[in-house]
Amino acid sequence: MDLDHQTVVGLAKSWGLIYLLVLAVGVLAYTFWPKNKKRFDRAKESILDKDDKPWN
């Protein structure tokens, strides 16, 4: 197969589009998955701890 302009455009319009959309849906699903909310809330609060030693 010749990797010419048409081929690249074809790939961009098919697989390129699919992977970008799948990725976007994946990221949004991960972000808004109800089960993850607790983890995110804890993550943003936990950096404010005054504790300055590694956990064992």
């Binding site: 949004l28 943003k44 950096i47 404010l48």
Partner: peptide
């Protein structure tokens, strides 16, 4: 910034979306 302000980031979810 959150550390210095003593406040958690406004939206953690938004930070993930803007990262990707």
């Amino acid at each position: 910034l959150p550390k210095r302000a003593g406040r958690p980031i406004f939206s953690y979810r938004l930070s993930i979306i803007s990262f990707w």
